[in-house]
Amino acid sequence: MRAASLAVLFLFLFTACGGPATEDAGEQAAPEQPAAESAPGMSNQIRAAYRSEGIPYDPDDKAWKEIPAARIPLSPQGIIPPNGGGSVAELGVRAAHDGENLAILLEWKDKNADREVGVATFRDAAAVGFPAVETDMLPSPFMGDEGHPVNIWQWTADFDANARGMSGFDERYPHTEGVWIFPQDPGVTRQVRAWRGTEPVMEFSAKGFGTLQRHDSQSVYGLSQHGDGTWRVVLRRQLSTGIPEDTLFRPGSATHIVLAVWNGSMNEVNGKKSLTMNWLPFELEPTMVAAATVAP
């Protein structure tokens, strides 16, 4: 009897809440136009400017305007199936450090802010990667290789929404709250949340395709804004965390960076992404030189 009435309840719920996910279907596959509006010293050199007074964290902080933006062209991923991406053609990158912390602002055009992960909907995301350790050879630009791990920071719009208390899940499936039967279920979900953390950014190591491994200790923070068809996302981390898997940044020296963007409404996830096909030099201004410029 109980089973039968539950069956009826479930079926009712399913028919009641199954709206197709077609809001974004109108979006064209054509690459989005460049995002970084004209700023002083536009180039494809990524250089973290030294700011003795502290680094901007909020994407809306005016201080970002003073930092030159690099415009980095992105390509679709076509090396390993599932291939795809290419819906974002260019990424604007600005970076700053204050000798303690590093902040990177990523800007790209994307009409829709895809914040929801539904059964068949995907979220927007962006990631940066650095060689995790300094060796005489650079890792493969495609997520590293055995012996040359890559440190990856990935920001995702759904974690971002969760961090702000916005849950797409409750909106899309409004009648499902509280229909679970077994008391252990909320426990399992809590465990998943704890694993995920509360930040919109997750830090990983990778040694090649399919090897992404989440770090036990997470040290990257993120803030984002979406407006005028543009995502602006700031990633922030200490230059040095003391954790061996984390890339160590030194003012006045250079490392390398790779970049990737996913557009959820184009079903981009996993290997379906727009990315840089090679390592780009990533320089940090020396603390001293910048201090000299600022000094009266």
């Binding site: 399913f14 028919t15 809440c17 199954g18 709206g19 197709p20 996910a21 076509g78 199936p81 599932p82 291939n83 795809g84 539904g118 059964v119 068949a120 909907t121 899309r172 079903n267």
Partner: peptide, 16 residues
């Protein structure tokens, strides 16, 4: 090259 097998991702409503 593009995919390892033919496949179809069911939509939300397909499970309803």
């Amino acid at each position: 090259l593009k995919e390892k097998m033919l496949g179809i991702l069911p939509d939300d409503a397909d499970w309803a």
